[in-house]
Computed example of a mutant assay.
Amino acid sequence: MFDVDWNSCIQCGACVAVCPLPGFTSQFDTIATHRPCDVSCMACERICPVTAISSEPGPDDDQLA
Score class of each variant (00 low, 15 high):
Asp61His: 02
Trp6Ser: 09
Asp3Trp: 05
Cys37Glu: 05
Pro20Phe: 05
Val50Met: 02
Gly23Val: 06
Pro22Ile: 09
Gln11Asn: 13
Val50Gln: 04
Phe24Asn: 10
Pro36Leu: 11
Asp5Ile: 04
Ala14Gly: 10
Val18Cys: 02
Thr25Gln: 09
Ala17His: 12
Pro57Cys: 09
Asp38Gly: 15
Pro20Ala: 10
Gln11Ile: 08
Thr33Met: 15
Val18Gln: 01
Asp29Cys: 07
Cys44His: 01
Ala65His: 09
Ala65Leu: 13
Leu21Gly: 00
Gly13Glu: 09
Val50Asp: 07
Met1Lys: 04
Thr30Arg: 04
Cys44Asn: 03
Asp60Leu: 15
Arg35Phe: 12
Asp61Trp: 06
Gln27Asn: 13
Asp5Val: 01
Thr25Asp: 10
Asp61Ser: 08
Ala14Trp: 03
Glu56His: 06
Thr33Gln: 15
Val39Trp: 10
Arg46Lys: 13
Cys19Lys: 00
Cys41Lys: 08
Phe28Arg: 12
Ile10Ala: 09
Gln63Thr: 11
Ala17Gly: 12
Val16Cys: 10
Cys37Met: 07
Asp29Lys: 08
Met1Tyr: 04
Arg35Thr: 11
His34Pro: 00
Val50Gly: 02
Asp62Glu: 10
Cys12Phe: 04
Ser8Ala: 15
Ile53Lys: 01
Cys41Arg: 10
Gln27Trp: 09
Cys12Thr: 06
Glu45Met: 14
Leu64Tyr: 10
Thr30Cys: 11
Ser55Met: 14
Gly58Met: 14
Ala17Leu: 13
Ile53Gln: 05
Leu21His: 04
Pro49Ala: 11
Gly13Ile: 06
Ile47Tyr: 09
Ala52Met: 11
Phe24Arg: 08
Cys19Gly: 04
Pro57Lys: 07
Val4Thr: 01
Ile31Lys: 02
Phe24Asp: 08
Pro59Ala: 15
Asp3Ala: 11
Ile47Ala: 14
Asp5Cys: 07
Val4Gly: 00
Pro36Asp: 14
Ser26Ile: 03
His34Gly: 09
Gly23Trp: 06
Cys15Gly: 00
Asp29Gly: 04
Pro57Ile: 14
